[in-house]
Simulated scan of single mutants.
Amino acid sequence: MSADSRLFPDLDPANASTLLPLFDELLAMMAADGSRMQRWAEVLPGQLQDLLVTAEHGDQQRWVEALCQLPQVADVHCDLDAYDLGIGAAALSAEQQADVEAGLRGLMPWRKGPFQVFDSFIDTEWRSDWKWDRVAPHLSDMTGRTVLDVGCGSGYHMWRMLGDGAHRVVGVDPSRLFLMQFNAIKRYVAAAQGKMPMADLLPFKMEDVPANLKAFDTAFSMGVLYHRKSPIEHLEELRGVLKPGGELVLETLVIEGPLGEVLMPEDRYAMMRNVWFIPTVETLLLWCRRTGFKNARLVDLNQTSLQEQRATDWMRYNSLQDFLDPADVTKTAEGYPAPLRAVIIAEA
């Protein structure tokens, strides 16, 4: 099975040649005999058709042109253990570097990172490496694991998972721009490794992943739960994609307080409209237990700082400073407790 242009005859040829080959290897792996993901392989071509053709994003052509501007570069190297992936080359002409910079800036705003791509340092809105440094010490050995990263953004943490030894990482995030940003980085990681890396981003919501695949050793859900109208359903979906005994890594907003307390914002929270339920840690642990997870435990609790999330030259819109009460940064602009994030680990 292949995601070539025969499956998508209505897709602009430039888009087809740039986007569709990126899914070939993933489709082949899913469809292989004995794959736990065969059911997903059966529906994935139709899902891609809907996203990339039927409901093509208005900016898709512009983003594809930005991807096409990124030049081929010889002697590329990278370090997936480095906080910025350290993508470099033995030699890069001034013209090539200008094209790299222009192509990457054509994919702004960049929210999750950072990334060093030759002489371009993408200083993203979030210092996602800080979150990884808090989470990584508590993970099971990633060597050889098949991982699902839900709400993966532009894929920064996916690369760090590969750097820690994961066998294959599949990310899902509905943002089409994140897909383009991920594939910009993937182009140069592939050049450095001499093969397509075992990481794939699909522009979907978690609800688009077939239920009860039981195909992944680890499932990450970081920064998603509070955006779901039913956090219980999200936890059940996560348990359903995990193999028996698989590991859940859940990072979400919490509030201080006792078991049973939950904050539901009147309208916005930190200027975000789509925030529904923010529990206390004890309530969150109860949700995990009630949905069948075992040994749910808190491994990190962190107040988001103005240094971890901020506007930069690569993300020029409002950021955390603008979402807090200017007279009291311990509160959001609406008067709620400022963002406090918990990391929970549990087993299916």
Rank of each mutant, 00 (worst) to 15 (best):
300 D>M: 01
333 A>K: 14
286 L>Q: 10
280 T>F: 11
306 L>G: 00
332 T>Q: 15
282 E>D: 15
297 R>P: 00
332 T>A: 09
287 W>K: 01
334 E>R: 05
276 W>D: 05
315 M>W: 11
273 R>C: 09
307 Q>T: 03
292 G>Y: 09
302 N>M: 08
292 G>F: 10
278 I>W: 06
287 W>D: 08
285 L>R: 04
300 D>K: 00
310 R>I: 02
310 R>Q: 10
308 E>G: 00
295 N>L: 06
335 G>T: 11
328 D>V: 06
317 Y>W: 13
275 V>T: 14
278 I>A: 05
323 F>P: 01
315 M>F: 15
306 L>S: 06
312 T>P: 05
316 R>V: 07
285 L>V: 01
279 P>H: 13
329 V>F: 13
312 T>A: 04
289 R>I: 04
274 N>M: 10
307 Q>V: 02
308 E>D: 01
328 D>K: 03
333 A>N: 12
276 W>R: 05
295 N>M: 07
313 D>R: 09
311 A>D: 09
302 N>R: 08
305 S>P: 02
330 T>Q: 13
286 L>E: 11
300 D>S: 13
277 F>M: 09
327 A>K: 12
303 Q>N: 09
298 L>H: 00
327 A>S: 14
324 L>I: 10
314 W>E: 04
293 F>K: 01
318 N>M: 12
273 R>A: 15
281 V>W: 13
273 R>F: 11
319 S>F: 04
276 W>I: 02
333 A>M: 13
308 E>S: 03
324 L>E: 10
333 A>S: 14
277 F>E: 14
317 Y>Q: 15
285 L>Y: 03
279 P>A: 06
314 W>C: 01
279 P>Q: 15
315 M>I: 01
307 Q>M: 05
321 Q>S: 13
275 V>Q: 08
309 Q>A: 03
320 L>Q: 07
308 E>F: 01
312 T>C: 08
270 A>I: 09
314 W>S: 00
319 S>V: 09
292 G>M: 05
296 A>T: 05
309 Q>D: 05
297 R>G: 03
320 L>G: 07
308 E>N: 00
274 N>G: 10
323 F>V: 06
331 K>M: 15
302 N>Y: 15
304 T>F: 02
306 L>H: 08
315 M>S: 14
327 A>G: 11
287 W>L: 05
312 T>G: 00
